[in-house]
Amino acid sequence: MTDHSTRLTRRKFTAGLISSSLLISSGLAGREPEQKGSFDLMKEVLRFKKVDAYTTSVFTKESIAQHLDYADRYGISRMFAANPMTQIELTPAEFRELNNKVIAAVRQHPDRFTGQFTLNPRFRKESLDEIDRCLDAGMTGTRLYQQVKINDPLYEPVIEKLASRNILIFMHGECQMGVGGYKMKYDAGKVKTISTPDDFADAARKYPEAMFQFAHLGGGSDWECMCKTFEPYPNIYVDTGGSNNEEYMVDFALKHLGEDRLFFGSDNSFYQSIGKIFASELTDGQKEKLFFKNYQRVLKKGGFHVD
């Protein structure tokens, strides 16, 4: 079997856990409030080992440098990354080229980046072949966009193949009025094939054995709507990425989805993605799950050994 090792190191992970046990928590509900001026935000942020389940990069030298800068700044040991793939026409030649770019970039920084691949299910055979090629190249999951909705029958062979190998199916989704069929009288002028939470729920019902990642809780969409839609579907995970950092977003997700279905993701909005977690009422244990353990557990199902 292909070695899909992502080379996450036990040493760094363990160091994070040890340090977290030595420091006191910061004024969670029911605890004594911190004294003014005594809170050290960066010390708190760096207590937790993190992997970013949603990094997007164009993989230029400059963009890679900035990602590494943010990652070092906030203690993110590994970024699961792919190109932004928003073109509605994504021919096999185009998606192979994009994936090749990711593979090449990851080879330059194998200790920091793991690649994710894109495809276009309108090209059935080529997409199924690309799954094999990319997994063989060390990629760990998909980065799907809006070429086709996730519950479109065109996706069925792709989902079936990914589910059979326990590969996490990451796909862009939105929950905005006027997008993807939701309250279209407020038409926001986007492509019609953007997947909504209802589309994800439809796919999750049809393929309970598949694992889906809805990107992204902070993507600007209605996160209450997302969480309430996903609550009955244990095979839908969400990442907390995106530029929207409304108060209580993460707590609401915890309340409706539980502590095992949340991943940390940035979608390159590093301030907001870190800030919203540390503003939440999550316990240390829940933060450890969100920042690392949940994603680790899901990847292990696909044979990706993070030790």
Binding site: L41, M42, V45, R73, Y74, N245, E246, E247, M249, Y271, Q272, I274, G275, K276, F278, A279, S280
Partner: peptide, 18 residues
């Protein structure tokens, strides 16, 4: 921008400067 936005992000933009 509390209580609409989270209380930490605005701090982080300053606190994480090297």
């Amino acid at each position: 921008h509390s209580p609409i936005l989270d209380y930490v992000t605005g701090m982080l933009r300053i606190a994480s400067l090297r």
